[in-house]
Design a protein around this nucleic acid. Sequence first.
DNA 1: CGTCCTATGGGACCAAGGTCCAATATGCAG
DNA 2: CTGCATATTGGACCTTGGTCCCATAGGACG
Lengths: 206, 206
Amino acid sequence: MNEIPPVVFVVDDEAAVCISLKRLLRSVGLEAQTYPSAQEFLRSERPDAPGCLVLDVRLPGLSGLDLQQELRAAKINLPVIFVTGHGDIPMSVRAMKAGAVEFLTKPFREQDLLEAIQRGIELSRITRQNNAEIRTLQRRYASLTPREREIFPRVTGGLLNKQIAAQLGASEKTIKVHRGQVMQKMKAESLAHLIQMAEKLRLSSN
Amino acid sequence: MNEIPPVVFVVDDEAAVCISLKRLLRSVGLEAQTYPSAQEFLRSERPDAPGCLVLDVRLPGLSGLDLQQELRAAKINLPVIFVTGHGDIPMSVRAMKAGAVEFLTKPFREQDLLEAIQRGIELSRITRQNNAEIRTLQRRYASLTPREREIFPRVTGGLLNKQIAAQLGASEKTIKVHRGQVMQKMKAESLAHLIQMAEKLRLSSN
DNA sequence: CGTCCTATGGGACCAAGGTCCAATATGCAG
DNA sequence: CTGCATATTGGACCTTGGTCCCATAGGACG
């Protein structure tokens, strides 16, 4: 199923760190790509694979925390693991609040880093799976006509065809047709299925 | 709607800290209850109100982090704000991973603490609301007969009455009766509504 | 033993959902 | 202008769901 090999991105301004981390990751069978700065990382073409980001907090230019914000703002979902030699508590708290998987201080045990990376990759896999599913649903939703998009949330909200007809000033017959179209276009096998889709698309009531 | 006044629990072994925090909270109109140790806090009768816990990491006996775990294990949902004079990064990371709202180091700005407390209380309100809703649903679910509990997830899974009948080796007629009972007992106004309940009760498919 | 809960269903009947065929109207792009 | 997509609706017809009334049957409980 999930055959895409994961990639670990390492951003650290010390070349020695990059090299040694890359070697460590290779030794456990993980592909690693290294970058000397946040900007380099952002500029790069990143493979479309599950993975995570190992980040030094202190970096020239954009800091690690800044990069974390950037990724978040750009809706790039990549679990972040911080590694730092000169961190403090507020820094770590900020990183964790922003969703970092781990925040390690040098020197750290290799084992701790590798475990965090595994957790990050697992998380990435799950998120990617979710995103893929949602994108599929969004594609289907995009194929609905405006009228069908009015019908959709009302159907999944539990309204009867006649109630929807009254709300939209149309005949019950028309609603049935649109409703059927919605079911088909969304590839819903049952009302239950359609409602689940609505929730994933956050269309239900909010 | 939500008229219950929030309560802030403060656990700190230094009486002076307790007193001054209590005074601070009073000054912004928040009720505070103080405890000198985690054990004292756990032993105490706590009011059933929204609130949060302000916790020193270092405490005699159970540490603040231990108390956080205890609450979690006991399914007591109370947002935790850590305050400490002698913290380190691993400590803060562990606290944040365990879901702490904030981790402040002394000396901290009063404003930061008060903001964290407000966030904690708000979180508590939301969680309490959710819990209350789920408990209501669980009470209704508890009133279902064994047979009705077999029907419920199949209905919300989108199966037709006839399919359910085949699965359970009963007539479609019987399923209809049970299904009607389920709708009534769960106070569901529509299938859509029932499906939402199933998801909140995590009965759907997982 | 009688009563209540649970589970089971038959018959009747109505409401709601779903589908097929057909038709009309509007607006936009080629 | 002419298709094409969209929106609308009617008629016919079938499937599902939902509700009444009624009846049977087993197990638990007082």
